[in-house]
Design a binder for these strands. Structure first.
Lengths: 219, 219
DNA sequence: AGATTTTGTTAGACGAATCTAACTTATTAC
DNA sequence: GTAATAAGTTAGATTCGTCTAACAAAATCT
């Protein structure tokens, strides 16, 4: 079994790899708020446990075993978030910190029961896919709203940044998953766009926001 | 804030004091499966934090502060057990180990929400009282079934031992909290008793069992 | 290409929580 | 009331996860 600390390293490795492709010691150090020498030594330990491929000065990679174990932790995290929103009536902006703790609970039945009560959900409240029982996760091929063209109508399917500030911002604009959005115009200077959705006819969204919104072109 | 380890010592101190009155290093050591020297040094640490009254070779006592903090952990434990049974449909024999982990979750809102969803329960699924927001807990004055007399009719209100084996035994006899039990006879030799309840007219219960069943005389 | 900056590693220390071995105090038994 | 046993403490070691200081390698910038 892995320690809580090891689990946090695995999860971070998994998440960074998913976001930015390559993981290095520095990035992991910043993400976990842990100094680089500590990270280096943990990488050696995880390498011994066959969870990470580690070579001095080279980028870090999870092994297949490491990916599986990381995926299973993220599975527990996302199931928990879904449970907190669906069954316990928390807002999507309030679940991260709690899930961050509950993901370390060691009990197979506990998460199986959650999953059952939730009706085997495929995604969490932020649209991120829930890894399967083997830790495997597949992202649908969403586009960033910032990559869409004028005139397109899309459906908001996931948010990349799950910071409570960003989610509160979306709340304040009445934006939630599933929302149908039409792109009315794009300002070339700063790439901000004007969209319409629901009862809102001309909402301005900065590029910073649009890059964090993943959408599906409607079928 | 107290570490997870410290929380476990506090809880054990609280529970042992409640069960047997006095707590000593040896007992705590056995309960926590931690060697005595380790316990001694932890007691010194908790004494520094004003959570425990500690004097060499003397029995151990929680301070008021210690009692409060222990009570709040047990509050979280019992709320969780109630949540697992009521909202997640676990059996009362399956919730202890999960609650043992969730009790350490640091989130005020999480447990407030639980409590609200449960409708502010007063007891957990085993009949133990849930401490209030200040960690204060009051046991009703239940009797042990083993102390009742022939002819009495009582209501099963709590179980002392919450081991899964004992609870499965009760399940197999269709015994649950709230059950009305009539004492038909007591065997003087081994203090086993014969009771009737529900559809069962003459069930034999050993003294070992009866000592672990807390009952209320009906109003 | 050489200098500078960034990134990564090595070495050594530290606190938390645990252990074993040896010793001391308290309790129990005869 | 002493001997034997049980309970408790002290001292010192160990593992885990962290740190800082110093050094080394790689990347970047003229």
């Amino acid at each position: 079994m892995n320690s809580l600390t090891e689990e946090n390293y695995l999860k971070a490795l998994f998440n960074i790899a998913n976001e930015t492709g390559e993981v290095n010691v520095n990035e992991l150090s910043r993400r976990l708020q842990i100094k680089m020498p500590t990270v280096t030594s943990m990488m050696k330990k995880l390498a011994q446990k066959k969870l990470v491929h580690y070579e001095s000065y080279k980028p870090l990679h999870l092994t297949e075993k490491g990916k599986k174990e990381a995926g299973l932790i993220i599975r527990k995290h996302r199931l928990t978030e879904m449970f907190l929103v669906d069954k316990m009536k928390f807002g999507w902006e309030d679940v991260h910190d709690i899930a961050e703790q509950i993901e370390h609970i060691q009990s197979v039945v506990f998460f199986e029961k959650m999953e059952e009560l939730l009706g085997y959900p495929k995604v969490d409240p932020h649209g991120s896919p829930i890894p399967d029982r083997n830790g495997k996760v597949v992202w649908k091929d969403y586009s960033k709203l910032s990559d869409c063209k004028v005139g397109e109508t899309v459906r908001l399917s996931a948010v990349i940044n799950t910071s409570s500030e960003f989610l509160k911002f979306l709340n304040s604009r009445e934006m939630r998953l599933g929302l149908k959005i039409r792109i009315r115009s794009i300002e070339p200077f700063d790439k901000s766009i004007i969209v319409s959705y629901g009862k809102r006819q001309a909402e301005v969204l900065s590029n910073v926001v649009c890059e964090r919104l993943l959408v599906e072109k409607d079928a």
